Amino acid sequence: MIRHYVLFKFKPGVSWDDPRAQQAEQIAAKVGGEVPELREWTVGRNISTRPIAYDFAAVGLLDDMEDVERYLVHPFHQEAISAWREISDWVIADVQE
């Protein structure tokens, strides 16, 4: 099993008041229902106020790296990436469980 972590940090001038951020959040919430390779999918806003904190997280569970590769190119996932690319930078980690 592979636990896929993604942490998003807003670009300067972007906040949750921005409609683009709200739209990206809504799209991200739907990825788990649209990408069949995802066994689990959790998203949410970070509640930490520390300066080092990221703004949003997505965590998925997939069977193996082949499923990760299929998830990455899935059209709905690509749509979500487009929404986030405009407003944020992100980091990822794929951890074998």
Rank of each mutant, 00 (worst) to 15 (best):
I2S: 00
I2K: 01
R3A: 05
R3Y: 08
H4I: 01
H4G: 00
H4T: 01
H4D: 07
Y5V: 15
V6K: 02
L7G: 03
L7V: 09
F8C: 03
F10E: 07
K11P: 11
K11Y: 14
P12C: 07
P12H: 06
P12I: 09
S15Q: 12
D17K: 10
D18Y: 02
D18S: 06
P19D: 09
P19L: 07
P19G: 05
A21P: 00
A21F: 03
Q22I: 11
Q22W: 11
Q22T: 13
Q23S: 15
Q23R: 15
Q23W: 08
Q23F: 06
A24N: 03
E25L: 06
Q26I: 11
Q26H: 12
I27T: 04
I27Q: 00
A29P: 06
K30P: 04
K30V: 09
V31P: 00
G32M: 05
G32L: 11
G32R: 02
G32D: 11
G32Q: 03
E34K: 05
E34F: 03
E34S: 11
V35R: 01
P36N: 08
P36C: 08
P36V: 05
E40Q: 14
E40D: 14
E40C: 10
W41G: 02
W41T: 02
T42F: 14
V43G: 02
V43M: 04
V43K: 00
G44V: 12
G44F: 09
R45K: 13
N46C: 14
I47W: 15
I47M: 15
I47K: 15
I47F: 15
I47E: 14
S48I: 10
S48K: 11
S48C: 12
R50T: 15
R50N: 13
R50S: 14
R50D: 15
P51R: 06
P51M: 08
A53Q: 08
A53Y: 12
Y54A: 12
Y54R: 12
D55V: 01
F56R: 01
A57D: 06
A57T: 06
A57G: 10
A58D: 04
A58H: 03
A58C: 12
V59H: 01
L61W: 02
L61H: 00
L61C: 08
L62G: 00
L62V: 06
L62Y: 02
E66C: 04
D67V: 04
D67W: 01
V68L: 13
E69L: 08
E69N: 12
R70V: 07
R70N: 10
Y71W: 07
Y71M: 04
L72G: 04
L72S: 12
V73L: 11
V73C: 13
V73P: 10
H74Q: 08
P75V: 05
F76P: 06
F76C: 10
F76I: 09
F76M: 10
F76S: 06
F76V: 11
H77P: 09
H77W: 02
H77V: 04
Q78P: 08
Q78M: 12
E79I: 08
A80H: 03
A80R: 03
A80W: 02
A80M: 13
A80D: 07
I81N: 05
I81G: 00
I81M: 14
S82F: 14
S82A: 12
W84T: 02
E86P: 05
E86Q: 12
I87F: 00
S88K: 02
D89S: 13
W90M: 09
W90D: 05
W90L: 12
I92V: 14
A93R: 09
D94K: 03
D94M: 06
V95Q: 06
V95A: 09
V95W: 07
Q96F: 14
E97N: 14
